[in-house]
Amino acid sequence: MRYKPTEKILASEITDEADYLNRREFLKLAGIATAGALVSSACQADVAEAVAERPIPGRSLGKVAKSDFSTTAKPNSYEDITTYNNFYEFGTGKSDPHRNAKDFVTEPWTVTVDGECDKPGTYDFDELLRASALEERIYRLRCVEAWSMIIPWVGIPMANLLKRFEPNSRARFVRFVTLYDPTRMPAQRRPILDWPYIEGLTIAEAMNPLTIMAVGLYGKVLPNQNGAPLRLIVPWKYGFKSIKSIVRIQFTEKQPINTWQASAPHEYGFYANVNPEVDHPRWSQARERRIGTGLFGEKIPTQMFNGYGEHVAHLYSGLDLAKHY
């Protein structure tokens, strides 16, 4: 296995929401500060620039801890992240989810936990969130379609959540299921995919410290089109692995068959790790288009495991990644 992390993940210095909103004052202060302070504040101003002129809509999630796993790269704008989505339950066009998920109601929301665990049951959303303190995780997201974004998620480490259900020794995989309700997810009326959407991880992948259950974006409650109220985030895998609007978590002995694998097994596998050396049968995965770079943006090289190799490469030692795509 070869990979070379090209970005060292450093402790992030992400500006919090109050600073985003006060950034004009902030910049003014920076202007009268010493030259050294000016340099360091310029980095923060960079992040603030990513935010739209308007304040981010939605209910604030309150205090959110920073994380060393966050990238220091500038996040995509709220607008890009919330208007360019693959969420086939609300339509197959990139702007369909933004339009069609407007009235999606996510309260109340329960998640059924079953399978190989000692604490199965149906849990209320708020109850699940009590598993751990909220953290901001600014992650790269690489879609299997060869575009990427940088997204400031808010969520809880998946391991902290799953441990509460006390998986037993037979629990080798975790299977996640999206809500199936064609009255609320209109595109489920058409058989584009075999609904409900299903995804799976090995237990080690699910427990990896990078894996989170996201409930927010830009410090606010997760917008519907981004998978509200709770979704998986596995940043070293193609975006389709990060299943949205989860209603069921199941611990299994057998490897689950995920929806895209069932739909086109020669194109999408179970692992779906970001890998510039293994092309999609119909297109190259060597480079990606970073959303937000405009008409003249250059494609950038895709990194092995989306740049998260130092945290996850060990999970796949001895596995032929060309075969287990």
Binding site: E79, T83, Y84, K94, S95, W147, R289, I291, G294, L295
Partner: peptide
């Protein structure tokens, strides 16, 4: 507007 991915849209 061409949206978030203007090249793809064009």
């Amino acid at each position: 507007s061409l949206g978030a991915n203007p090249i793809e849209e064009l």
